[in-house]
Simulated scan of single mutants.
Amino acid sequence: MADAAANAYTSIRDDIVTGRLNRGEWLREGKLAQELGVSRTPIREALRRLEAEGLVEFAPNRGAQVTAWSALELEDLYQIRARLESLAARLAAARREPEDIAELEATATRMAELAADPNADRDELTELNNHFHRAVVLAARSRHLGTQLRGIIDIPLIARTFHKYAPERIRISAAQHLELVAAIRAGDGDWADALMQAHILAARSVMVPTTNR
Rank of each mutant, 00 (worst) to 15 (best):
D3Q: 13
A4R: 15
A8Y: 03
D14F: 01
T18H: 06
G19K: 10
L21V: 00
R23H: 04
G24W: 06
G24N: 11
G24D: 08
W26T: 10
L36I: 11
S39K: 08
S39N: 10
P42D: 09
R44F: 02
L47V: 04
L47I: 05
L50S: 09
A52C: 01
E53L: 08
L55C: 11
L55S: 11
F58W: 14
A59W: 08
G63Q: 10
A68S: 15
A71E: 15
Y78Q: 02
Y78C: 02
Y78T: 01
R81C: 07
R81N: 08
A82I: 14
R83V: 14
E85S: 07
A88F: 05
A89M: 11
R90V: 04
A92Q: 11
A94M: 12
R95E: 08
P98L: 13
D100H: 13
I101T: 03
L104G: 12
A106F: 06
T109L: 04
E113H: 04
L114N: 04
N119I: 00
A120D: 07
A120H: 06
D123C: 00
E124L: 13
E124H: 02
N129G: 10
V137Q: 01
A139R: 09
A139F: 03
R141Y: 02
R141P: 06
R150H: 13
G151E: 14
G151Y: 02
L157C: 05
F162W: 06
K164Q: 12
I170D: 00
R171Q: 14
A174W: 02
E179A: 13
A182F: 04
A183W: 11
I184V: 14
R185T: 11
D188I: 05
D193K: 10
L195S: 05
M196Q: 14
Q197Y: 06
A198K: 11
A203S: 11
M207T: 11
M207P: 01
T210Y: 03
T210Q: 15
